[in-house]
């Protein structure tokens, strides 16, 4: 650990969906913090600086198990889990087939269940741990065309609250970050007029950077957030206020 590394660093951190967007920003944040970082991605980017990149789709239970075994062997048990892997398959409900529904729930909600379950098995023995689920302001606003996405992201909040109670006696905290409009590939996919329309709903009048979301995730993983559990931290420029 270098002299400048903040207290409480040097932990084993796992970020899912770590190759792009918010996940990649989280990977960079924890690496800079002096932690031992691994990330999962369906197609990992070229070697990220100082992080262990593993090809793993969170919809594959065997792949998740293999990835955890690999991480535990190389970095030790996961102490901080950032469940960030997520997809969208936006379409109006009348046109949303089972596959579009299932795919989004399977990655965003069930994928989080899979990695949380596996991480918690070890955290119980450690008697410490941090679970941070990346939800979305979309869970509360409920934008048209996002029934599947909103349901999956709202589901994370319920799951986090149940787990917060379940795991509190072991000093394992479980929190949710709810980003609003973040400048990532997922947002770039929107057409320009829709994006402008959405920005008008944001009091701060701009999109967030992925780094601004990563900073909130980093805080919830920090020593200073030790008394925070079951919380939903919006990082949405004021878009969701009170929802």
């Amino acid at each position: 650990m270098s002299d400048t590394a903040p207290a409480g660093s040097g932990r084993c951190v796992l970020v899912t969906g770590g190759s792009r967007g918010i996940g990649a920003a989280c990977v960079s944040w924890f690496v800079a913090n002096g932690d031992r970082v691994a990330y999962l991605a369906r197609s990992p980017a070229k070697a990220a600086d100082g992080a262990l990149a593993l090809a793993c789709d969170v919809t594959d239970p065997d792949g998740v198990e293999a990835a955890f075994a690999d991480i535990e062997a190389r970095l030790g048990p996961v102490e901080v889990l950032v469940a960030n892997a997520g997809i969208t398959r936006d379409t109006l409900l009348a046109r949303m087939d089972e596959e579009a529904w299932r795919a989004v729930i399977d990655t965003n909600l069930t994928g989080t269940y899979r990695v949380a379950r596996r991480a918690v098995a070890r955290m119980l023995r450690l008697h410490r741990g941090r679970l941070i689920f990346v939800s979305s302001v979309g869970a509360f606003v409920g934008l048209p065309g996002q029934a599947n996405y909103a349901a999956s992201k709202a589901g994370l909040v319920g799951m986090a609250r149940a787990l917060a109670r379940e795991l509190a006696s072991r000093s394992i905290t479980v929190n949710v970050v709810a980003p609003g409009l973040v400048a990532t590939d997922m947002i770039e996919a929107l057409d320009a007029s829709r994006l402008e329309q959405m920005k008008e709903l944001v009091p701060l009048g701009r999109t967030a950077t992925a780094e601004e979301v990563a900073a909130a995730v980093g805080f919830l993983a920090s020593e200073g957030a030790g008394y925070i559990t079951g919380a939903v931290l919006p990082v949405d420029g004021g878009m969701g206020m009170g929802l």
Partner: peptide, 11 residues
Amino acid sequence: ADSLDLVELVM
């Protein structure tokens, strides 16, 4: 032993 202890023991 609480319920989590038992889960841990079973594992």
